[in-house]
Nucleic acid binder design. Structure first.
Lengths: 237, 237
DNA sequence: ACGGTTTTCCGTACACCGCACGGAAGGGGT
DNA sequence: ACCCCTTCCGTGCGGTGTACGGAAAACCGT
């Protein structure tokens, strides 16, 4: 029987699958970076891969899976090559844990700023991916080396993590609102006016709050130092 | 002209509007409590009010508005009747700020547990509603009375707030996963196995992490004490 | 060489979503 | 009696996640 004319034969099937979990996850990260969680949809993701929407479901069983995978993927961008291995018997100076922790959360903040959709996803779902676990392991290891253990260690870890994600979440939110330069001045002014108009109702807020020209870097460090001081009180150093 | 038969006359129009912002917001809180953010939709909300979907838009310009209003509404459930007004000149004992803060964040946690959808919304949007502002005012006031000011005060406030919302977010997440008793044992075991199987890759985590039988109340207090100790180091008391 | 099985891809369809638009109906003012 | 304004909402449009089933290529045993 003669072949059908070329024109009707369709694209030849590739030897190896065109799609893969890696490609899907990478595209998902790109889409999330570009459009945020709200702008993320399976159809749009498929379009980015020049694929049919339902093809994605060969590799993933639900949209939630893609979000889980994308989240863990970007958590892998945190550099874990620290200098806190079991060093010489002399050991690092007391308080080396503090530097190590500062470096780690600085990395975390960098990643969460590069991918502003991350903070909203963390805390919503269990973080059991390999990179999430590696990050937790890092924090636990540093705190254990600092002399903490048991509930105290867990509490310290949760204090640090909650602070970092909470801070960056609001930081990202404010940055996003000020992104559009047309809105920026307007937002600053209207927020300021909103507060000023209620200065009598919220005196402490009006006297001390300056969201309109916050220095996020310095603010982050100061809050972090508070948490770290609290931990230091439990290490004996 | 004769009236049309009663049967065709339709329901009589009420003198006063049947809907109101208050009713809508109250119903929204109920729906969010029952179904979570994912299960919340304008259609379902309207159904709860026996109203047409589009009727809601007479009172609200978008779904986002409803979420903003519902969020601020439940923040109003935080009891602000504290004992920290400008008391006698003798003033409260040094460290009274600590008790006041503990009471306030305990209230916050209670509200966020009663309305588990709250933590996910906080941090996503600017909190400028009256109840949100009142809550911030409360924290700022306590910290100012403790002797903090300027950037230090702001950092302390953000450390406390981030810790509380972060902790309760993950607390709620774990509680939700363990809600269904059928899944609970399974989840506990599978999570445990997941970690145990990787104990060599994550030694510190395996040695110290016990999410399967966490005491949230105690854990919350311990992490909070860490943050509060860090603040105490800045008050001179 | 060939038939069957498995893998990969995806079109269609369904139930649901937010919300723009325009109309209907009743109340109040003149 | 007239008109307008407030309140209510049906319809429709363009989007969503994903269940289902089919088509075709690749692989494999004979």
């Amino acid at each position: 029987m003669a072949d059908r004319p070329v024109w009707l034969r369709g694209e030849p099937r590739r030897r190896r699958p065109r799609l893969s979990l890696e490609r899907i996850v990478a595209a998902a990260v790109g889409l999330l970076d570009a459009e945020g969680v709200d702008g993320f949809s399976m159809r749009r993701l498929a379009a980015r891969l020049d694929a049919g929407t339902m093809s994605l479901y060969e590799y993933v069983s639900a949209k939630e899976d893609v979000l889980d995978l994308a989240l863990d993927a970007v958590l892998g961008e945190i550099d874990l090559s620290g200098t806190d291995g079991p060093g010489g018997t002399g050991g690092p100076g007391a308080g080396a844990w503090r530097d190590a922790l500062v470096r780690h959360v600085t990395q975390s903040r960098r990643v969460m700023r590069a991918h502003p959709w991350v903070p909203a996803l963390v805390g919503t779902r269990p973080l059991l991916g390999p990179n999430a676990l590696a990050g937790s392991e890092r924090v636990f290891g540093i705190l254990a080396a600092a002399g903490l253990a048991g509930d105290e260690l867990t509490a310290a870890a949760s204090a640090v993590s909650s602070y970092v994600t909470g801070f960056v979440a609001t930081e990202n939110m404010w940055r996003a609102r000020m992104r559009d330069p047309a809105d920026e001045a307007d937002l600053r002014r209207s927020t300021h006016e909103h507060l000023a108009a209620r200065a009598d109702a919220y005196p402490a807020l009006a006297a001390h709050s300056r969201p309109e020209n916050a220095d996020f870097d310095a603010g982050f460090r100061q809050g972090l130092d508070i948490v770290l001081d609290g931990i230091a009180a439990r290490t004996g150093s």
